[in-house]
Computed example of a mutant assay.
Amino acid sequence: MSQKQLPQEFYQLMEELQAVDFVLVELTLYLDTHPDDTAAIQQFNDMAYYRHQLVPQIEQYYGPLQQFGNSYSGYPWNWNQSPWPWQI
């Protein structure tokens, strides 16, 4: 299978998604030990909301990102259209 050529915007959006995911993981770890920190909870919720806005934007142009029913497939089945994680 040949590697799909993607525009620079795809890589910028993926980098942004990776940064958001990193923040969410770190805040989850922090909140596990500081469950009453309202500022951290607000930041977590803000980042979770932002992630829910960002993922559909990426998927609209470049295909599904998450399996197990977390992302819809286009027609025809388009999971094999997007680059594999090691290709980006």
Rank of each mutant, 00 (worst) to 15 (best):
Y30G: 03
I41Y: 04
W84D: 10
P56G: 02
Y49Q: 12
P56K: 02
A48H: 14
N78G: 04
M1R: 15
S73F: 12
Q60T: 08
G74M: 14
L17V: 08
L31V: 04
Y62D: 00
Q53S: 09
Q8K: 14
V23K: 08
Q60I: 03
S2F: 11
A40E: 03
E26W: 01
S73I: 12
E59K: 04
L24W: 03
Y72V: 14
M47R: 13
E16D: 03
P35M: 00
P85G: 05
L13K: 00
F44T: 01
Y50G: 00
Q53K: 10
Q67W: 04
L31S: 01
P56T: 01
P35D: 04
P76L: 10
P64N: 10
L6I: 05
V25S: 08
L17W: 06
L31W: 06
P7A: 08
E26S: 04
Q53N: 09
H52V: 09
L54V: 02
Q81F: 12
P83T: 05
P76K: 11
A39P: 07
L54H: 06
L13F: 00
Q57E: 14
S71V: 07
D37H: 06
W84A: 13
L31K: 10
Q87G: 05
N70E: 15
G69C: 04
W77V: 13
V23I: 09
Y11L: 14
Q5K: 15
Q18P: 00
Q3S: 07
Y75E: 14
M47T: 11
W77S: 13
N70W: 15
Q67I: 11
P76T: 11
T33K: 02
L54F: 01
D46T: 15
Y11G: 02
G74D: 14
T28C: 01
I88D: 13
G69K: 01
G74C: 12
F10C: 06
T33R: 01
Y62G: 03
Y50H: 13
L13E: 07
D36W: 06
H34M: 07
Y72D: 10
T33F: 08
Q43Y: 05
K4H: 13
L65R: 07
Q18T: 09
D46Y: 12
Y72A: 14
H52E: 15
H52Q: 15
M1N: 10
P35G: 00
E9N: 06
M14S: 05
L24M: 07
Q3C: 07
D46A: 15
Q43A: 10
P7R: 06
H52Y: 09
Q57K: 15
E59V: 01
N78V: 08
T38I: 10
Q87V: 08
F10G: 06
A39G: 03
Q57D: 10
Q81E: 15
Q3V: 15
P76R: 10
E26N: 05
Y61C: 04
V20W: 00
